[in-house]
Amino acid sequence: MASQGTKRSYEQMETDGERQNATEIRASVGKMIDGIGRFYIQMCTELKLSDYEGRLIQNSLTIERMVLSAFDERRNKYLEEHPSAGKDPKKTGGPIYKRVDRKWMRELVLYDKEEIRRIWRQANNGDDATAGLTHMMIWHSNLNDTTYQRTRALVRTGMDPRMCSLMQGSTLPRRSGAAGAAVKGVGTMVMELIRMIKRGINDRNFWRGENGRKTRSAYERMCNILKGKFQTAAQRAMMDQVRESRNPGNAEIEDLIFLARSALILRGSVAHKSCLPACVYGPAVASGYDFEKEGYSLVGIDPFKLLQNSQVYSLIRPNENPAHKSQLVWMACNSAAFEDLRVLSFIRGTKVSPRGKLSTRGVQIASNENMDAMESSTLELRSRYWAIRTRSGGNTNQQRASAGQISVQPAFSVQRNLPFDKPTIMAAFTGNTEGRTSDMRAEIIRMMEGAKPEEMSFQGRGVFELSDERAANPIVPSFDMSNEGSYFFGDNAEEYDN
């Protein structure tokens, strides 16, 4: 993207840094990872977990959730003011799984939030270390993106479920800051804005008074975040219109849905970061690795190297396929839920299948599930090659597409044709070009129609051997075009429920 120079890199967003050079960025990201790792080690000690239990991804998720809940100030305040039966607002906890007599047992633990905050700050040299908290939120978000298709949420806001490739980060909490905003897809931002506008339509006082002023500035800020994701002048001009509207209503909703559809071809720039579970960072720190000293990046080879040398386990339900569970977590670790499966298959070195073909449910185990038949197995999170994460949407291309997802959002900077089903997408653009945004709409449609099938995206960008740390010898991959490109292809993934 041309304006790259004016933006802070995501590592800076990730670490609240002012302008830093590459070495400083690597050190501050490393410091953040160190903090998460030290916190995780301490929690495993508190909970008396064995090494194996500490490497269980379900335990990692519970521990991450506990610290996120302990620092969720708004919710904590709300819980104190609106006490609900049987919930102690000062405590947080969740299921911890232990191996007892050759069987997995679930144990519900409860801790004072104050105590968890103390352990977290102690692991982070006394700081609140917001960057580390956001990092864990993005890992949870990436896992949700890989596990669930947001059909219901899309339909509720009037969008087409086939636009799911635009929904990265749709389950990120509001408090995820600049680093969170960077990884949100165009569809996620559109959905947040539509929800806001709908509230304004239904509630006369939404934009009024002292609160209304705050609401208005939040609305304009979200519009600017979305505008910054678009790469064409016409899309940005249309966002200006939406932002400046005196009284946002149905016309703005129409414009936003139009823009979301246009992003299936004229893709937005959305950041991709490899955020790993805390149970990967903990053992690495415990083994003596100093992330701050060595430096770390979320968008280069580092996460690949770390996963190459990590042992992570997962509980497996009786009829689940461990290899499929591994694929789910591998995609989440690489922030690749909406990437082209052919690119992923090449990088991973084994075939990556669409969601609907995987015999696996989510990673988390519900409290009512029976533990008797639970097994555990090693997650295979290694890769054959590594590639640089991208934040450009890439230019655009036609490809055989599917009944489910009709476009992709690249996660890796790797040369390819970008699949999208042009006739299906263009069919949504018939007729409606009147109104105050008509010239911009016409211009956007013209650009979409001009998108050429034979153009290559990320020209000359390749993948790298894991021994090639400096990215000196790019390998331009070859793809098996007979395979499906979309992950949520004609899909039956479970729906995400809060």
Rank of each mutant, 00 (worst) to 15 (best):
Q4D: 00
Q12W: 05
E14L: 03
I25R: 14
I25F: 00
M32S: 15
D34I: 14
F39K: 04
T45V: 11
L47W: 02
L47Y: 13
L49M: 13
L56M: 13
I63V: 13
E64W: 08
R65L: 06
N76F: 01
V100D: 03
E107W: 05
L108R: 06
V109L: 13
D112Q: 03
W120M: 12
R150E: 12
T151H: 07
A153P: 08
M159G: 03
R162A: 10
L166Y: 01
S170Q: 09
R175A: 05
S176A: 15
A178K: 10
G187M: 07
T188L: 06
E192W: 03
I194M: 11
R208M: 08
N211I: 05
R213E: 12
K214I: 13
E220L: 01
E220V: 00
L226F: 12
K227V: 10
A234I: 13
V242Q: 10
R243D: 11
R246E: 04
N247D: 03
I253T: 13
D255E: 11
L256N: 13
S269R: 05
S269P: 14
V270Y: 06
V280G: 01
Y281F: 07
A286V: 06
S287Q: 10
K293Y: 13
K293H: 15
I301V: 11
Q308S: 02
S310I: 12
S310N: 07
Q311R: 15
L315P: 05
N319W: 02
V329N: 06
S359H: 12
M371S: 11
M374C: 15
S377H: 03
T378G: 08
L379D: 02
R384Y: 05
Y385N: 11
R389K: 15
P410Y: 00
F412E: 00
V414P: 00
Q415I: 00
F429P: 04
F429R: 03
G431P: 09
G435Y: 06
R436N: 08
R436S: 05
M440Q: 12
A442P: 00
I444Q: 14
I444C: 15
M447D: 00
E449H: 01
E449T: 14
E449I: 02
P453S: 11
M456A: 14
S457C: 00
S457R: 04
S467L: 15
D468A: 02
E469W: 02
A472E: 12
F479A: 12
M481A: 04
F488C: 14
F489P: 01
A493H: 06
A493W: 07
E494A: 11
E494W: 01
